Amino acid sequence: MPGTARGPVDRLRALCLALPEVEERVSHGEPTWFAGSGRRARVFVMLSDHHHDDRLGFWCAAPGGAQERLVAEAPDRYFRPPYVGHRGWLGVYLDGPAPDWARIEDLVADAHALVGPGG
């Protein structure tokens, strides 16, 4: 509904599901978005809802160098996530100061392009 405030998880979900060939499944106890179909579907965004710390955020695939640049630029907003950070994935906090949803939309689209169909 226009004018209705949505929580950050709902906004993230809407961004992910608006992309082609995306499916949401629970993985490791968290909503996770897969790009592609069947056995070729790969994770491109996963929610991190207080699982590893007391923060709400998400992890996403990121182009080379993006993680280092964004974490250096705004460590209160971006972080190197456990388990996948060594592969260049980016963590994004959704709590704290108002998230930059235009940038988050770009990050989600980039993650989808990296691992999704044709990526």
Rank of each mutant, 00 (worst) to 15 (best):
T4W: 00
C16K: 12
L107Q: 14
D95F: 02
L47N: 02
R25A: 11
G64Y: 02
L94Y: 11
R87H: 11
D76R: 13
V43F: 03
H50Q: 14
E105M: 13
L70P: 01
G119P: 03
G29D: 04
V84H: 04
E68S: 07
D95Y: 01
L15I: 05
D54A: 14
W59L: 11
D106E: 14
E68P: 00
R42L: 11
F79L: 12
E23K: 03
E23M: 00
D53L: 07
D10M: 02
G36D: 05
M46Q: 13
C60L: 08
L15D: 03
A72W: 01
R69Q: 08
G38H: 01
G65T: 05
R42D: 05
D54W: 01
P99D: 12
V108F: 07
A113E: 14
V84R: 00
E30H: 08
A113W: 03
R6Q: 14
P75G: 04
R25V: 12
D110T: 08
F34Y: 15
R77I: 09
R103H: 11
R39C: 04
Q67A: 11
H50S: 09
V45S: 13
G38A: 03
V108M: 13
A113M: 06
V92C: 15
R69N: 02
F34M: 12
G36I: 01
R42G: 13
E73F: 00
T32P: 06
L19T: 05
L12F: 06
D110W: 14
V22C: 08
G88W: 01
A35I: 01
P8C: 12
L15T: 06
G64S: 07
S27Y: 08
V22L: 04
Y93M: 07
F79H: 10
D49I: 06
G118E: 04
P99Y: 10
Y93W: 15
L90H: 03
T4F: 00
R39F: 03
G57I: 06
A113Y: 06
W101R: 04
D95L: 03
F44S: 13
R6H: 11
P99I: 10
E30Q: 14
D95C: 03
A111G: 15
